[in-house]
Simulated assay, not measured.
Amino acid sequence: MNIRNQYNEALNKLDVDVSDGLRDLIKIYCMAINSFENDIVDSIALYVIDMGNKGTCRYLQEILSENKDPYLVKILMYG
């Protein structure tokens, strides 16, 4: 499945469960940051800022502790 299809499915999930939808979007962000899907990357950041909560912050911290990509860590920490 490509990134755009996963993104659309995560957006649909936001209507049902915001936390799960945001988790899926963050996973997609981690893949899309190294692709040419700039519109998806930009929109995911806006969704997380707009709809995120403390649980989202904790999940981002988990991603940061597991991830070995220094660029992604830099973006998530300071982006």
Score class of each variant (00 low, 15 high):
R23K: 15
F36T: 15
I49K: 09
Q61F: 08
D50K: 09
N5H: 08
A32F: 06
S65L: 05
R58W: 06
T56K: 13
D20P: 00
V18H: 04
D15K: 14
D15C: 07
V18T: 14
C30A: 13
K13R: 15
V18C: 07
N12F: 09
N12D: 15
R4A: 13
F36M: 14
D42E: 15
N67E: 09
G21R: 05
I44A: 01
A32V: 01
E37R: 04
G21N: 06
L46R: 07
S65R: 04
R58P: 00
R58S: 12
K54L: 08
Y47H: 14
Y29N: 03
I26V: 13
L14A: 07
A45V: 12
D50R: 11
T56Q: 13
L25N: 07
K74N: 10
L64E: 03
R4Y: 15
C57G: 11
V41Y: 01
R4Q: 15
D50Q: 09
S35K: 02
K27N: 14
S19P: 03
Y71C: 00
E9I: 12
R58K: 14
P70F: 01
M51N: 06
S43R: 07
C30D: 02
V48W: 05
L60P: 03
I26P: 05
V18R: 14
D50F: 02
G79W: 05
G52I: 04
L60K: 12
G79T: 01
E66N: 12
L25P: 02
M77V: 11
S65M: 03
P70R: 02
Y47M: 04
K74E: 11
E62C: 01
T56S: 13
Y29K: 02
V41I: 08
S35C: 05
D17V: 07
G55T: 09
M1K: 10
D17L: 07
V18F: 06
L25K: 06
I63K: 13
Y29T: 03
S43I: 00
I28V: 11
G55F: 10
G55N: 15
N34M: 06
G21I: 04
I26T: 09
L76M: 15
I3S: 03
V16R: 06
D20L: 14
I75A: 11
S35F: 02
L64S: 01
N8E: 13
D24A: 12
F36E: 15
D17N: 15
G21S: 08
D39M: 00
S43P: 00
K27R: 15
L22D: 05
D20Y: 11
S65T: 08
A32L: 02
D24C: 08
Y71F: 14
Y71W: 05
R4M: 12
L46N: 03
D17G: 00
F36P: 07
Y29H: 11
L72H: 10
Y29G: 01
E66L: 10
S65Y: 03
K74G: 00
K27C: 11
P70N: 05
D24G: 11
A32E: 04
Y59P: 07
S43N: 12
C57N: 13
S19H: 14
N38F: 11
L76T: 06
Y29E: 06
K68S: 09
L11P: 01
C57M: 13
V48Q: 09
M31F: 08
